[in-house]
Design a protein around this nucleic acid. Sequence first.
RNA 1: GCGGUGGUAGCUCAGCCGGAUAGAGCAACGGUUUUCUAAACCGUCGGUCGUGGGUUCGAGUCCCGCCCACCGCGCCA
Length: 583
Amino acid sequence: MHVSFNIGSDLEAAVSGAAQAAGLEPGAFSPELRAADPRHGDFQANGVLGYAKARKLNPRAVADQVVAALPASLREHFEVGIAGPGFINFRLKPATLLAWLCTYDSAEHLKSGAAALYHGQRYVVDFSSPNTAKQLHVGHIRGMVIGEAICRLLAFCGAEVIRDNHIGDWGTQFGKLIWGYKHLRNDAALAADPLEELERIYKAADAAAKADPAVLDAVRAELVLLQSGNPENRALWDRINTLSAGAFTSIYRQLGIHFDHQLGESFYNDKVPQVYTELTAAGLAVESQGALVVFHPEHPRFKTQPFIIRKSDGAANYASTDLATMLYRTEHFRADAIAVLTDARQSDHFEQLWLTTQKWFAHTGRRLPRFEHVSFGSILGEDGKAIKTRSGDPIKLQALLAEAEERAFALVTEKSPELPEAERRDIANAVGVGAVRYADLAQNRSSDYIFSWEKILAFEGNTAPYLLYAVTRIHSIFRKAGLDPAAAMAGATPPETPEELALARKLVGFATVLNLTTAQLRPHFLCTYLYELAGEFSTFYVANKVIVDDAPVKARRLLLCARTLLVLETGLQLLGLRTLTRM
RNA sequence: GCGGUGGUAGCUCAGCCGGAUAGAGCAACGGUUUUCUAAACCGUCGGUCGUGGGUUCGAGUCCCGCCCACCGCGCCA
């Protein structure tokens, strides 16, 4: 029996076809296929309600017509019913559930099923993008974690993903850093802990510039010198970047994050003049108060709120380099889509950037890629205020991860003292880092996130430990039975008990959730799904003993276990979590 | 002032293009282990979905007004 990966989208097409065959107005009817409440079925089509209402028809009669026109083959897979005012309900037959489970039996097969979604599309994903000479702190982690998950998800769904770390290695902060380096540096401290000292220098220079306009001018002058190629400043710049790159790399390695490119702002330095020239020629950029700016007359705010692409002192800023970056990603990488991850406070900037790019490319006859600013809320302290780099004591990422691991180690030791210490350390790493990561992913990215140890390390509910535990329980079953979960499962019969059926249905829903998650680039949809899947598994696990004497029952339960394991591990890996076999 | 994001159970959050009796976790209370990992499972309790209108057969979801919180709005990124 052939069964497609995304059963829902096939069903939707079938209902559309049936409506047409039944003589409903072409183009006027949409199936409105939804995942249904399990009490009613697996899918429901609501489209006839609106259609019938608009034409003063009896909705149940219309539903009857549509159902009667469904292809006979569809009834091999679904039980079809009409309920209430005209809902059409579809319930997957156990044999179809079994067929799906037998077909999608490996990560490769799941991937090839999902690949239709973004096949042939090239995505440039810009994430992490820290500023040089500032240590990574808790405020940086969200973009890193969400960005990595998005890259993995898009690649799994067939896209060609180009990961680019757009490092802030050319901004105004270098004026402060270089001025501070020349005037405020402590050589002993720099030798002992370069990044710490550079950060201190930066903060001190920033404070001095705020306090004294003369310092501010000097800082700007250093930046102009750097950007015009002054050898001394250039050498300092180089040194500062080298020092910080090492620190970033170590964190990226810990988190399993990698990039294909690290084209920082400096890379675009020589590409900025073209932006000025073309935007001016297009009549988009104008001089205002000594700066080169772009206004958008059709926009209620951006008709007066300028997009400053060259500062009055002649220096470039991030608008300049971001425009050059859009061009480079379009022309050099031939991106079909560009996704940039930053916190939501930069929304205005990216809206202006995108408006400007559209007009610019239209004017110069360039192909326009899709663009998405993947924004996310700020990380807040327990007091509900944003954690900022220059105020208070933001938690360093290095320290955060170390503490998470330490706390996880204490818990593992408490729960599983019999395991050797080396293994407990390894488990603590996966659980601790995974918990921090998962906490950032599980919440809708558009809302702010209140950081608290209690929440990040909570081991109940929708958390990494709960999911990792479900994975280890499944491994344990196979270990006890002396079986390989990846081996073929012969002799399985279709799911029968309520728990088996609920679990099988949830597994089939993996296709839909991949669709939803990538369409909106919101990993929390996948998190919610995996949490629900793990819940269905736990319910199944306590109610249905797997290793039983009845061979067909044992085979089908082992099959369900194997597929749950496959989907959980695949899903968690897409989110960037490392899974375990014991904990 | 303009704009963005949010306001759902005591707390932290889900709720996808409008659909059938609004869901989890924590907290509180009660139960489950001679049986594959109890970091688990099951049950009870708990909600005028900020507020007032509107559209609709149907609104937590869409539209308008208002209230509250946070964020952004000319040379930081």
